[in-house]
Design a protein around this nucleic acid. Structure first.
Lengths: 342, 342
DNA sequence: ATGAAAGCGCTAACAA
DNA sequence: TTGTTAGCGCTTTCAT
């Protein structure tokens, strides 16, 4: 197999210099139309492919971005990554992926790996157990282009793309209220993550708006898993004054909630309402189907990448900090709708 | 912000040459222990990070591999990618990801992107609609290190890591037989993909072994989706001699099958048995829970990467073609087990 | 409109 | 054991 064509092969074939070829290939204004034509022709003939490595070394840009996700096992992240990728590829960027498995330790390792690979920027959805954002503040001072998506954090002063978690939670809770549930509990997520605080606030404010009492006993803080949903229900059912509905901070929690309710022979939605968050794939396939909040995954991916791109290209200017907030889209299904209520 | 430290900064600080530093950093045998020590110390002090771009340009190795998956929306692929990533990161490789969205066109685009990024090797699970493997044969002649995983194809002469689809299908079908289903149908996948041929053969051979009649009308070729599962059932129920069980080529098909059966008020597993393939996450959460075949996702990812690595490192030798076949692990759940049968 | 020349940071053959 | 030197392929300033 012969060596791949370089800019020089083209140049010698045409009796011009590599510089001219390079410029022609970049459609540089000061190159004559005719040479551009012939360069393109020869490039094509020799099946020339630009060596991105060499070009990166020279230009300092790799045209690669890194994406850190907690896990690829959820439809949510798969779908966001899809949005990112689609958009990135259109703009000539490649996507490196790294799964943190929900630990801050791996998260850092991933970022270090990305930096070693000289990515142009990084997209991060922080791990469940990330409580300390010092590392991100450090990155910020180093001016590494970085954008948080979904799980963001204000304190680090980093741009982000999220959905309106507060509003989503508000809509969900209000929907339960309208379906005549009277004692609505909340299976919450780790409160060091803003996303889960916001959802809790949304839940609380919806109750307030409708003059329903807030009750600390009705809030269970779990860790966003099927297991924690089950535990939440065990806890709620142990109360003297038992709730009759749960707004879960996330679909897997909601799934655990439903499973445990079924184990107790409690009927959903007749006796007990359930609302989730994330619009995971399984939600429309379980029985009853799960009401939830769609997070605009593809749009989130697209916006995240585009925001990152802006930051990458703005690198020299004063760094912009932007927050993009997408609208949550409720998906009302069976688990929260009593048949006799309109 | 000052520029990141280079090999030269270290060299000048120590009054030695860049070459020595480079060698020290690689733990080259002919460098004295003491200089290694001091180099390491200064490197640390200056927070030196090797520039992989420069090193790639020189060495011709990027330490990146590309992975093409049809879609990130399935637990299966997410999980395999996890296995790949874990293993790759341990060996100092980065993973580029590309989703083909199940079209051959995107698949090729992804590979071209990877080649442009000069990855050291490529892992591919081919798209549903890939019927022509000419492109892969071409890659093969160009000696691009490449390994198929899950959805492989013999004809292209490319190494692969798969599970024993034949055996998995055989086990599934035999299990249905043992549960006293008498007219077992098969909702199959695209027959231009070997994986689905193998599953069909496994199904057929299990029937043969137990002296049950083969019936072409009992095989429906779909495209591996919820929709095609529904259509399959509509077709099967339209037959005069209706089946009483379905072995579906894949879990999403099985899900469609179950949904459509429920829509017809047919009881699973009492009146109708269902068996899937892939062990998708939803299978244990739907009602009834879905019997299926686990595909050893993490092991598959690990094996795939390791095989690819072998090929990458063997590049100069005569190319090895290897096939690694993993054992399918049946997961027997409710959808295929009649209560009154032991 | 094109060429000449330098250099991105690292590695490796050859020399000493 | 360490230094010298060249060069991976491309981009870009300066010159023509």
């Amino acid at each position: 197999m012969q060596k791949p064509a370089t800019i020089l092969s083209i140049a010698t074939e045409l009796n011009i210099t590599a510089a001219t070829v390079s410029r022609a290939l970049q459609n540089h204004p000061s190159i004559s139309h005719s040479t551009k034509q012939s360069v393109l022709k020869v490039a094509n003939k020799l099946n020339y492919k630009r060596n991105r490595i060499a070009s990166s070394l020279r230009s300092g840009k790799t045209h690669m971005i890194g994406v850190i996700i907690p896990s690829a096992n959820t439809n949510f992240f798969g779908s966001v990554v899809h949005g990112i990728e689609k958009c990135a590829n259109e703009k000539g960027y490649n996507v490196l992926l790294y799964q943190s498995n929900e630990t801050h330790e791996h998260e850092i390792k991933g970022i270090e790996t990305f930096l070693a690979a000289r990515v142009d920027g990084i997209l991060v959805s922080v791990a469940k157990n990330t409580a300390d954002f010092a590392y991100y503040e450090e990155l910020k001072t180093k001016k590494i282009p970085i954008v948080f998506f979904d799980r963001a954090e204000d304190s680090a002063g980093i741009s982000s793309v999220v959905i309106d978690d507060y509003k989503g939670a508000f809509i969900a809770t209000e929907h339960l209220i309208k379906n005549d549930y009277k004692r609505i509990a909340h299976a919450s997520g780790p409160q060091h993550l803003k996303i889960f605080c916001d959802r809790k606030r949304g839940y609380e404010d919806a109750l307030k708006k409708h003059d329903m009492p807030l009750n600390d006993l009705f809030i269970y803080e779990g860790n966003v898993s099927i297991e924690s949903g089950k535990t939440a229900i065990q806890y709620f059912l142990s109360l003297n004054n038992k709730p009759d509905a749960v707004f879960a901070a996330e679909d897997f929690t909601a799934l655990g909630v439903m499973k445990e309710l079924k184990a107790h022979n409690i009927k959903i939605p007749e006796e007990f309402g359930v609302f989730g968050f994330a619009n995971e794939l399984f939600g429309e396939h379980i029985t009853p189907t799960l009401s939830t909040i769609d997070q605009q995954t593809v749009a989130m991916g697209k916006e995240s990448f585009e925001l990152l791109l802006q930051i990458i290209e703005n690198k020299t200017e004063t760094p912009v900090e932007k927050k993009i907030v997408l609208k949550p889209v409720p998906v009302f299904r069976e688990s929260s709708q009593r048949k006799n209520i309109k």
